[in-house]
Design a binder for these strands. Structure first.
Length: 436
DNA sequence: GCGATCAGCT
DNA sequence: CACAGCTGATCGC
């Protein structure tokens, strides 16, 4: 699409309309710009619009253009090059990534383009079936000229079960540890369904840190306060910031009370496998209690639903509960859309795989002269519809007092600013255990 | 001193 | 390494 027209998940000045797919930090860079958002109309889901002011207090609410899943809006823009008027129609499609996440389908004078943002596509699930129908309805038989695809797991070996299946596996792990406390690593937004599933299955409340509880309530979840709590004494299951579930924090917790950690995410499980591929035999006899069933072929990366979830490090379970589509889902998505061509959204890192390498045959321009090998082409994104990943810059006011390991101290204002809206780090065992 | 950005880490 | 995000350093205003 033409430069200077619309931007998706990119918020530097110069576009006439801006679109936000979801509220994860690596998609909001630039939104917190000094003095607040001024660059133009900002389209997002109603859910995202509700959460936005808590993360970006300076935002001018009159610029928000909430677009419900399935809804459309018409935009009158002007061509930056010729100054001629351009009309564009955008339709929001549920992305089923985290709450409030959307894909955007653009149609108009410049053709038809679909930007998926991060998405999941569990074809057997009702929600995904509805999303698929919404997409087909929105397309109305049109051909998509270009798909910007969430290529996070764009490799045939990267397949894993639907989230519901993994949620049940997690429940079973917790059931198998009746005398253990449990910490589950989560992000600032997302995986609420997993926590609700666990709570329902085990008839227990779940601890979350205060900011996280605010987010949950803003989402309209658990308004009667029946599931989530910030009181440590009420439950042995706690959802904590993902980065604070480490071997060290688990060891610390285990000096107080037997505790297991659960990481509902695909990556570490994926990384272990590639580690193994890289150096299959050189294994320092580390203190990890490797479970059996890990010798079935050094390059085996597929998730095997028949073998139990693997215990990687002592007391720590990593399961592929993913908010991104796996390869088979990407394939189904591409078969559904059958665009003229496709490019990947996730471009930084040498793991980047050009989706055309695997899906060229599902593109109508497949005879074009590209070879589509897996490549590291970070320099590719020159147009303003390609988002940049990494780094953020949010801002919230004032340093404040917090407790760390029993003592009070001030952290730097910068730290506190960033901490607002995010997590309580959990090497401060006492706060968690409820000694206080 | 402040925000923005980067490097490092998980 | 990187689903996302924390932390500290540094740079320019």
């Amino acid at each position: 699409m033409e430069e200077g027209l619309v931007s998706v998940d990119k918020f530097s000045a110069g576009s006439q309309a801006y679109f936000l797919t979801h509220l994860h930090q690596d998609h909001t860079r630039g939104l917190g710009a000094a003095g607040g958002w001024r660059h133009g109309p900002l389209y997002c889901s109603p859910t995202t619009a509700r959460l936005l002011p808590t993360r970006f207090p300076g935002i001018d609410a009159s610029l928000l253009r909430p677009l419900a899943p399935g809804a459309s809006a018409s935009l009158s823009l002007s061509s930056p090059t010729s100054d001629r008027p351009l009309s564009l129609r955008v339709t929001a499609i549920p992305a089923l990534h985290c709450p409030g996440s959307l894909m955007y389908l653009f149609r108009g004078d410049l053709g038809c383009m679909l930007y998926t943002g991060d998405f999941r596509w569990e074809v057997g699930c009702d929600r995904a079936r509805r999303a698929k129908q919404a997409l087909l309805d929105a397309l109305g038989g049109d051909t998509v000229d270009l798909v910007y695809l969430d290529n996070t797991y764009c490799h045939p070996s990267l397949n894993f079960p639907p989230r519901l299946v993994v949620a049940e596996q997690i429940v079973n792990i917790i059931r198998a540890h009746p005398d253990h406390e449990v910490i589950i690593g989560v992000d600032t937004l997302g995986k609420e369904d997993l926590l609700l599933h666990i709570s329902r299955a085990l008839q227990t409340k779940i601890w979350v840190w205060p900011q996280r509880l605010l987010t949950i309530h803003l989402l309209g979840i658990d308004e009667n306060h029946e599931v989530f709590t910030t009181q440590t004494s009420l439950t042995k299951i706690r959802a904590v910031p993902r980065y604070s579930v480490t071997i060290e924090s688990l060891e610390a917790l285990n000096t107080v009370c037997p505790t297991i950690g659960i990481m509902p995410s695909g990556i570490p499980w994926l990384l272990r496998s590639s580690e193994e591929k890289a150096k299959p035999k050189v294994r320092p006899p580390a203190k990890s209690a490797r479970s059996k069933g890990r010798d079935e072929g050094p390059t085996k990366m597929d998730y095997d639903p028949l073998s139990p979830p693997k215990l990687f490090d002592k007391d720590s379970y990593t399961l592929p509960y993913s908010e991104h589509a796996c390869f088979s889902e990407l394939k189904d998505f591409m078969q559904t859309v059958r665009p003229s061509t496709v490019v990947g959204i996730v471009s930084t890192s040498f793991c980047y795989v050009n989706p055309r390498h695997h899906f060229r045959h599902l593109c109508s321009d497949s005879d074009a002269n590209d070879v589509g090998t897996p490549i590291n082409n970070k320099g590719r994104d020159s147009d303003n519809l390609t988002p940049k990943r990494r780094h953020n810059g949010s801002a919230t006011p004032e340093g404040k007092k917090i407790r760390i390991s029993g003592s009070s101290l001030y952290r730097s204002k910068v730290t506190m600013k960033r901490k607002d809206g995010c997590g309580a780090r959990i090497n401060d065992t006492e706060e968690l255990i409820g000694v206080a």
